[in-house]
Structures are given as structure tokens and as C-alpha cells.
Design a protein around this nucleic acid. Structure first.
Lengths: 165, 165
DNA sequence: CCTTCAACGTTTGTCCCGCTAACGTTTATG
DNA sequence: CATAAACGTTAGCGGGACAAACGTTGAAGG
């Protein structure tokens, strides 16, 4: 890039490696093989990929979670969504707002229980969800690219078992 | 609280499941098997265990990283530590301060390059590191408890490969 | 020698995330 | 009825990752 005399990019050269980039290169041996650390690093990378991928669609992961929940069990109250997605009800408010702004979801008071808002996915929302499905699938692919099909299945099963305490 | 008369603990009963607790119980099928999500959840759990375990020793994970680096390559400048541990130099300041307060580390100006501080691990620091080693080992054990020895090795190798892009 | 530039340590601030607390409203319960 | 519980919402905290800027010190080159 720009071989000419034009020195536009001083190039900091300072730099502490961002965690996201730092595979393990210089890391102390004690840390290099630590499962908890490997998990943290891979998860960080995964999270970065997901966030970036979704950002391109003007979405965040919570959006996906909510839309997925709505797709699976139709219209749901916010509290219900909170339970199913694990999003705190405090944070859910903003998520619903954002989804509503984008027309992916509608918030209507529940006539039968006036405490509740019933959240309903719109047609646009469903299209959006399908787009996100594809994005997510691509990301999983990229994330586990170096693994064989069998290894991928193995990984998810190992992780799954760890989560069941 | 404590109004004597048998107040059986109000028990919020409200509750959105904390991410840390939420295995997958009610999660939408779309999310349930998503590798990026499984990674995030297990990593979150791991992180929680590690943070709590280290907190009991009045330590944080950065402390461990720095001590490990110092143990491996003797005294090092802060910038050097930053590179090896992946901690941003901005944040490293506080970490060194904390370690210094606890007497695990000494910060001395480098006479040969007066820009640098040379960080040296003390004897107490080394003892501390060994304590942390044990704590960490226990945590890995707990974390991967449901996995066989072979599966544990498999998991770390899969994760390792994913990290090498 | 003097200027320029890079590295160093430090301070300050930003953004996001998981999570808590509190509050007003509405519905159940007894 | 009174009281408790669930609901949606606002505000805030603590921590982690990261950027920007600054003063100081060293290295390199004209």
C-alpha cells in the first residue's frame, strides 16, 4: 500500500496486542494450555465475529435471540422473552425498542393482563430473522473452519455437557 | 430486614435467569446448539469460577498472568509484560500497583533505560503464584468435571486449533 | 549538536455487558 | 379489602477491553 514517498500512515508501532488478536504467541506456558483461558479466547473471538456480522445487518445478538424466541413460540410477553433468552428484563426494554424501531416487532398492550406487553414478530421481522440465520451459519463455519465435521459435532457436544453441570 | 417473626425470606421470585445459571433450559432451539453461544456460555461460567476462586485469594486473573510471565522470563518491563500477557498498558498500571501493594512484585526504575520500570517478582509473589496455580487447577477440574481425561485433552486441542485461525 | 521519532509509563475516558435496585402499575391471593 | 406478586421501565454500578493524549526518555540521522 502506498509505496510512494507519501507517508500517510505513521503506523503507531506501539501497540499492545488486542486480546482478540492475541492467539498465544508469547503467552507464558502456564497460560497457554489453560482450558479456562482457551475458552475465554475462543469465546471472545466468536463474540467478535458474531457482533461484527450482525452489525452489518444492523442487528445485535440479543435481537437474534428475541426473534428466535418469537419464531418458536409465537407472541410473548417481555417477561416471557426475558426467561427464554436469558436477557435481563432491564436490558430487554432497549432491545424491544430497537426491534420495534426497525419494524421487526410490535409491542402491544395485552388486553387480558394490562401489566403485559405482548411482543409480536412482523413479516419484516421474520425475513430479518432468516437473514440473520444465514449470517450466523456463516460465522459458525468460519469459526470452526479448521475442524472436521465430526470434530465440530464433538466440540458442541463437549461444551453442551459442560453446561449441564 | 430481620423482623423476627418467621419471615421466610421474601424470595424475590421475580428473576430473570442470570446468564451464568442459564444452561439452556428454555432457550429457543435455534440458539441451543449454536457453537458461538455454547462457547460464550461455557466461557462465562469459566470466567465466573476463575474470578471467584481468585477473589478468595485476593487476586484477579491479570495478577496471575503477570506473575506467570515474571516467573517464566525473569524481571521484565511493563511494556514487555503487556506484550506477553495481552494486557493493555493502560490497564497494566493498576495491576502492577495492586501486586506491588500486596508485596508480590516490585517496581524499580531501570537505570539503563530510565523510561522503563523493571518489574520483579518477590518471594511472596512466588508463593502466591503457587497458591494460584493450585486454585486454577482445581477450577479446571471443576469446569471439566463431566469430561473424561481424554475428552479434556481433546477439548483443549480443538480450542487450540481454532485459535490458530 | 539538534531535531525528529519511537518507546515507555501514566491518566483519563469511552463503550459494552451482566447485573442490581427501585418504582409505579396491575393482577392474584386470602 | 389488604397484601403480595408479577410486569415493564429507569437508573446505576462494576468490570473489562480499548483509544487518545501527554510528559519523559532514549535512538538515529543530518
Amino acid at each position: 500500500m502506498s509505496t510512494e514517498s507519501g507517508r500517510p500512515a505513521p503506523e503507531p508501532a506501539d501497540e499492545t496486542a488486542p486480546v482478540s488478536e492475541m492467539g498465544d504467541r508469547e503467552a507464558p506456558a502456564r497460560l497457554r494450555g489453560l482450558p479456562s483461558r482457551l475458552l475465554a479466547l475462543t469465546a471472545a473471538r466468536a463474540d467478535r465475529l458474531v457482533s461484527e456480522g450482525l452489525a452489518e445487518q444492523d442487528a445485535r445478538k440479543w435481537h437474534y435471540a428475541v426473534l428466535a424466541a418469537l419464531d418458536e413460540h409465537g407472541p410473548t410477553s417481555q417477561a416471557g422473552l426475558s426467561r427464554r433468552t436469558g436477557i435481563y428484563r432491564s436490558d430487554l426494554v432497549a432491545v424491544i425498542n430497537e426491534l420495534a424501531e426497525r419494524g421487526h416487532v410490535e409491542r402491544t398492550p395485552d388486553p387480558e393482563d394490562r401489566r403485559r406487553n405482548v411482543i409480536t414478530m412482523t413479516a419484516r421481522g421474520r425475513e430479518h430473522l432468516e437473514r440473520l440465520d444465514r449470517v450466523l451459519a456463516d460465522i459458525q463455519e468460519e469459526l470452526m473452519e479448521p475442524l472436521s465435521k465430526a470434530e465440530r459435532a464433538l466440540l458442541t457436544s463437549l461444551l453442551g455437557r459442560m453446561l449441564d453441570h
